[in-house]
Design a protein around this nucleic acid. Structure first.
Lengths: 350, 350
DNA sequence: ATGAAAGCGCTAACAA
DNA sequence: TTGTTAGCGCTTTCAT
């Protein structure tokens, strides 16, 4: 792969009878070069098989790039905390190549804070940015601004409809719902399933789980058409209401043995589940939050579908780095990532 | 994390009243330095928070390190082909930091070829080596030779009892058997299970799956104590014998619905399974070989337990690189890696 | 449009 | 034991 002989710009300068300076100019397409010289240099590069020495280049320009990461603020124990952890991992691997990272957080329930964070990102003049987009329209606006400035960007977790991004890393949502249904039912027909959902108040905030729910529904339709699907809405900030809501539902439908949630909050059900044990019950949720994994370990939750958000972050950052440093485009633009099935028997090393 | 000011060896030379040369000497512990100077330099380094500039270093010494990878030869479609793929991935990430990779293959059924490969590795004078050890004793011998020469090494997939390695990356074998049993039975008691094994002829070749089998047995004992476990041995090179062996077994035990293999060869059963369809059957195997994943997709195999051997390889190489370049020890020496559960609903993006 | 030359931070050979 | 110095290959002024 790598050339064994080390051809330097000096070699190609000599070969063409030009100087290092001119060679450098054509190498970086920064004009001020006669057509004739340009061609000669290109020919020599081709002929000699020149490959730039990255270290020398980096050393000489002493330049450090900045990659900005724009994600919802990550309180401990939340999904975004996991993603944030990926920043540090990535920093380790690309930090050595002259890329620094800075993260900018916003309140996922406050569109204004998102706008403000975008502005701060632009002020920092990054060479690239990773975006976890929760507000569709605002993200499009921001993406346009980035494009205007020629700043490459990548999405993680989800992505808006608009194009122009360098890469996307995330879970295939529809299929995750399908997989979830299979794990919940084991492939057998079941009489009824309880879907627990978060009550979202107001706002254009799109529900990120609709696609997942659709996949789930389709699986059930195909494999368990007789199944009754019940919905219960809870308020994550009011534990009592959760107990109440579940009590109410089970009073009506005591036979339900299958419970599912499509977001990362399955851990909210743990208290109720523990007060009402049922060895025949199956509970499936999403994402490897600590609280969720604990519930898996003690058997309260049967299965979790997870996706290593830190890996997605790392990949996004590395892809961006490759592009920034060497203008290398990713192999695939849309990278749908593997969905991990977690049970009590394989959580340990996750 | 990263220092914002760039402290160079010149800074610390000035600070201590010494020269760059001396600073460099203490930085690389290459003696010829008075105790007094040494201390002063160390103090200054600490104080100023000096961090070496990797590019400058790499540029100056123009040296490229070699990491040797010693694995069984990887015919297409085998487990080791997957591991080998990780070499290229790692090459991408550490290649930019002055580390090249070279792999040395051996015949996993021929101890002599292993010895020969070891010799070739030593000849190449690598700065580090990754070993996939299949021959316990010979590996120990080789490890000793490496230690003698001060060459760091890491194991992947499995590791011998002896110490002295830098790191290990692999699957927790015993637990993988346990997990496998859970996936096979779904947690329910089952009447009988057929275990298909590879007939190994002669040689001290340790069976890499014994631990896995032990984990499996223990699970069954706990959850399905009444279960009958049958063993059938097949010869991977003789497809006809496979059909014959299975036919024979099922003639005697027509009620068996659970089949498992503890190595990566579950795909060998596909022809037989397809000729004898049974929608109630569950078949579980290991490793994400293409043939296995195909069988998963078409429903012949129910579940695969996999481990991304390419990731293990990548991690081993990166860990070695960190050590070679910066003498940085890995956080954990023994890295038991996550076991992935693959079903037809989540193979697609694996 | 092109060339010359001064670094970037570190290494290593050579002097002292 | 320590200091000096000439590169490593590339970038970037500043002349020309």
């Amino acid at each position: 792969m790598a050339q064994n002989e080390k051809i330097t710009i000096l070699d190609i300068a000599r070969r063409t009878g030009l100087s290092k300076g001119t060679v450098d100019r054509v190498l970086h397409h920064r004009g001020e070069v006669s057509r004739r010289s340009y061609d000669k240099v290109m020919a020599a590069i081709e002929e000699l098989g020149y490959e730039p020495n990255v270290y020398a280049s980096l050393l000489a320009k002493g330049q450090h790039h900045l990659v900005a990461v724009l994600i919802p603020s990550h309180e401990p124990g939340t999904f975004w905390e996991l993603a944030a952890a990926g920043i540090d991992k990535a920093a380790e691997s690309v930090g050595t190549v002259g890329i620094r990272m800075q993260h900018f957080e916003y309140d996922q329930y406050d569109i204004e804070s998102f706008r403000a964070a975008c502005a701060r990102v632009l002020d920092a003049e990054p060479s690239g940015v990773v975006i976890a987009p929760l507000f569709q329209d605002e993200t499009d606006v921001f993406a346009a601004q980035l494009r205007e400035r020629g700043i490459p960007f990548a999405y993680i977790d989800s992505k808006p409809e608009s194009d122009g991004y360098l890469a996307y890393f995330g879970m295939p949502l529809y299929k995750s719902g399908y997989l979830c249904a299979d794990q919940l039912t084991g492939g057998f027909a079941v009489p009824s399933v309880l879907i627990v959902r978060i009550r979202r108040d107001r706002q254009q905030q799109s529900d990120p789980t609709i696609n997942r729910r659709a996949g789930f529904m389709d699986y059930m339709l195909e494999h368990s058409p007789e199944c009754t699907l019940g919905n219960v809405f809870i308020d994550p900030n009011d534990p009592d209401s959760i107990e109440g809501a579940l009590d109410a539902w089970f009073r009506e439908h005591p036979g339900t043995r299958h419970i599912v949630m499509f977001n990362s909050r399955i851990h909210l059900l743990v208290p109720w589940l523990q007060h009402h044990p049922d060895s025949q019950r199956r509970v499936v949720g999403f994402d490897n939050l600590k609280a969720n994994m604990d519930a898996l370990r003690d058997g309260t939750v049967s299965c979790l579908i997870a996706q290593h958000p830190d890996e997605q972050m790392r990949l996004a950052i590395e892809t961006l780095s490759e592009y920034i440093l060497r203008r290398k485009l990713p192999q695939k633009k849309d990278n749908f990532m593997h969905m991990d099935i977690l049970t009590r028997y394989n959580v340990e090393y996750y």
